[in-house]
């Protein structure tokens, strides 16, 4: 199901293919990330969700196809133009990826200091505001090693919005969180998106959380987009893929087994050794 909106999408992916060695990770996928919306990207482990974020960020180049971010073709950018574009993108890595030799304050100040000539006083004000948004103003002097996983992700969020980007990409922000911290992160992602006018891409395994915050969901599997639409539409859709994933069934179109030779043959081969 496609709903045509009036504005052009912020991220437009057309016919994207990417391979690691001989393995096709993506095989001609199309995707639109709408402006101002939260889009969830879901799929089984190893389908290339992280890879997709890296492709959008221009860290790796696709085999074929086009990726446009805010109308700019990422795949053809020079390094310096890419860096200009990245200043307008925030990315949250799976474990936060905070710089371990700096405290919380300096971590958030880091991109501001690197990219602007603002005075220390100004930076202090800005960082304090970002810390207030994620509720960690009191933790500004802690080192990353002193933070819990959930706190580290919130600090990383504050750092991702330090330069007021137009979009943020979250790589599995919910894994390994207790229910409370999970609730906090869910609320934060939605709030940041709506109050700062961002566009958010959330990669996740968590069906419940992802469907509760996202406006649109893309289901990836086997190098293809197997279903997309609002979470309600996916829940009600007749597609086998959507059914398996949304209901967490162990077997279905996504096989439980990694591709292998026939089981009986495998056992016989072992017997012949």
């Amino acid at each position: 199901m496609t709903d045509t909106s009036t504005t052009t999408p912020l991220v437009e992916i057309r016919n994207l293919s990417f391979a690691r060695g001989d393995r096709m990770i993506f095989d001609g996928i199309d995707m639109d990330i709408e402006r101002g919306k939260v889009t969830a990207i879901m799929g089984p482990s190893g389908t290339g969700k992280t890879t997709l974020l890296r492709l959008i960020g221009g860290q790796i180049k696709p085999l074929t196809g086009s990726i446009k971010v805010d109308g700019i073709e990422v795949t053809k950018l020079s390094r310096s133009a890419l860096f200009q574009l990245r200043k307008r993108m925030g990315m949250l890595f799976q474990n936060g990826a905070l710089l371990t030799d700096m405290n919380v304050f300096d971590n958030i100040a880091f991109p501001i200091r690197e990219h602007t000539q603002l005075s220390e006083k100004m930076i202090r004000t800005l960082v304090t505001m970002k810390l207030q948004v994620v509720g960690l103003r009191g933790a500004r002097n802690l080192m990353p090693s002193e933070l819990s996983g959930g706190m580290a992700r919130r600090v990383a969020m504050a750092r991702a919005i330090a330069l007021d980007p137009m979009m943020i990409m979250y790589d599995e922000p919910f894994t390994g969180q207790d229910p409370i911290s999970l609730g906090v992160l869910v609320r934060l992602i939605r709030e940041l998106n709506d109050t700062l006018g961002l566009t958010s891409i959330v990669v996740s395994h968590d069906i419940k959380e992802a469907s509760s915050i996202s406006d649109t969901i893309y289901l990836l599997s086997g190098g293809k987009v197997v279903a997309h639409g609002s979470s309600k539409a996916l829940h009600e859709s007749g597609s086998e893929w959507a059914k398996q994933f949304m209901n967490g069934l162990p077997d279905g179109p996504v096989p439980f087994h990694y591709p292998a030779i026939d089981y009986a043959e495998d056992l016989l081969a072992a017997g012949n050794k």
């Binding site: 860290q59 200009q84 990245r86 925030g90 890595f93 990826a97 710089l99 991109p111 690197e114």
Partner: peptide, 22 residues
């Protein structure tokens, strides 16, 4: 090596900061 393993260098790249120079 640890900065690379914990994606700190990748994170810098995504913040438009060249990790080699920085």
């Amino acid at each position: 090596g640890l900065m690379k393993a914990t994606e700190q260098l990748s994170a810098m790249e995504m913040m438009a900061i060249d990790p080699i120079r920085r």
